[in-house]
Design a protein around this nucleic acid. Structure first.
Lengths: 196, 196, 196, 196
DNA sequence: CATGAATGAGGGTTCATTCAT
DNA sequence: CATGAATGAACCCTCATTCAT
């Protein structure tokens, strides 16, 4: 489908030439359509860029949601491990694309997108952790905000500092450790906690 | 001094108009100098941009270093609390500037800058935590990388999601909690630890 | 056609304003197109300039070739007279253009063009004089080089010194005389030469 | 002396960077003076350029004049040989300078200079050939014009086509031959001519 | 609907020239 | 007088956007 071709072309140009060289002509050519056609789908360059980000965050949110949905009732340790893995895998699948999008964010006023994504991630994660069989939290929203900020932020840092594979593996392990230590520190003492 | 005026003008334009609208003419006008003068100090737009970031990261690194220097031999709890506070304060001093610079990163190949900053932060923090009187770590570099990634990442997330003051305060408290929980989880059992 | 308009505009600007004032905007305006359009045909100013020269030399070379082709087997006197006339006529057709192009040479690294033109002129002229019925030359290439250098150089001098019509006519007559005297001086005594 | 330094610097920049990169700052720096000082000697760039050319042509004219002065009463063969040699040597002494100046001519309206030079060359040469002991010419001015146009033009052609040393030597020999053949063809039959 | 040539505002950069020191 | 930092008009070139075909 034309639209998909345009999206993919945008990402490819972004990765290959950087946000600075992302021109409508270049994208159109790579997508195999004319500029005119592209303007039928997107009224201006900005909207194209916006749509690409929207789509990207949408897919990401879906992955998180589907993971959270599937792991209700698990242990917080499983949840944390899975959450980190899910988020990292989604980002690491196409690292250059991830990096390119991280860097291209400047171009658009995407606060709306980020907020929407944040809300979805918060909600899904909160629902999952709320169903944990081995822990309860007095202020779940705060816990979730802390957890996600830490995970998302750390992952972003990895890409920014361009760490080596070995370092990344270690860091992700430590990240899990950190999150679990945190959750255990803030969870309420409960009967459920007996199994520990 | 002219140079400072240019720096400040760059930041102001960045904040007011965004990286996309950062043009040499605009910066020059706001700095109260001619384009020609600007080009006497910076061989091209890029270098101006780069210099601003370099300066910013330099100040940031210095603040971290001076804090770390001053708190050798403290407890890990004090270190964590101070580290978070120092980093956050530096970023929150001029929030719009911080946000503007976070977003402008895309424009320049600043991996070198980020790496240099990372190394300085790593070194200073490692030296401090290595001197902690109440904890020892088997793999200090990894612990530091994790700690800083988490702190830096989380702070960045705060700016990206544009959280409210109250949320921020809570989140920072939780962040300290999380870091301490992590450090306690990974520290080596030691004689020094007796006091715990 | 747009392209021809651009060529002609370039020449006109060159003539009217000189090579120093030949700007892309000026050419575009005179050609009745936008700068953007010009850049669709020529990747940069230089290439436009180059193309104009190329075209000019190409036409010139063709005229020489066609004359030489048509006068094989003639007498050297006819050849010389025709050669001078052909070259001069081509140059004198639009004297200001000729002068403008002579002066604009500095702007472009046109050694390649000049060499190419030189080779074509050499080849055509050599073929013609090689077929002369009343003379043979021991070292034809050298004779041709001398002949053409002298003719081309003299003509250039005329334009540079901006001689009056009467002087020009006289000079051209003398030039023919000089060339013929030279050829007679260097030609081999031969059976063909009997008629002399 | 400062002025000489500026002249030499101009030429060096011209040779090293081409007429396009000849900027006042660059010349001043190479001359070891400030732009301000340069503007004390030359009211604008153009005048500097003009002066350099003037000086160059002046030296050239002097060489021709002094040769012509010294060879009054010689044979036309000696005159021609010496004239070609003198002119060529002057040009070939610093070939890059010659080439650079040939190309830079476009920048300035130097018709005046060229005319002045032409007149001096004409006068000197005419006086010399008028004193030849072995030939008389009915229309000396025309003969001189032809002779000089041919010599000057041919030499220029050599630089333009960038011929090899061997070719150059041959060409110069032929040029002498051509000039002598011409002079012999147009000289008046005279008693002086007996020696022939 | 698709095309892609045409547009031209606006960007980065240069450099002849000035003038306070 | 010499200096060289400051100026800003003007240059070359790009690219988002339009619209006749």
């Amino acid at each position: 489908m034309t639209l998909d071709a345009i999206f993919e072309a945008t990402i490819q140009v972004l990765v290959a030439d950087g946000p600075y060289r992302l021109t409508t002509t270049r994208v159109a050519k790579r997508a195999g359509v004319s500029v005119g056609t592209m303007y039928q789908y997107f009224p201006h360059k900005h909207s194209l860029f916006y749509a690409v980000n929207e789509r990207y965050l949408d897919v990401l949110a879906e992955k998180l949601e589907s993971f959270c949905q599937a792991h209700r009732g698990a242990s917080i340790e499983q949840m944390v491990a899975g959450l980190v893995k899910t988020y990292w895998s989604a980002k690491a699948e196409r690292p250059e694309v991830t990096r390119a999008l991280y860097r291209s964010v400047a171009e658009l006023d995407n606060e709306v997108l980020i907020e929407a994504f944040g809300r979805r991630a918060d909600a899904a994660t909160a629902a999952m952790f709320g169903s944990a069989t081995d822990a309860d939290f007095a202020d779940l929203p705060t816990v979730i905000l802390t957890l996600l900020s830490s995970i998302f932020g750390t992952v972003r840092n990895v890409f920014e500092r361009d760490l080596e594979a070995a370092q990344v593996a270690t860091l992700l392990r430590q990240l899990r450790l950190m999150c679990i230590a945190y959750l255990n520190a803030v969870k309420m003492p409960s009967l459920k906690g007996d199994a520990e």
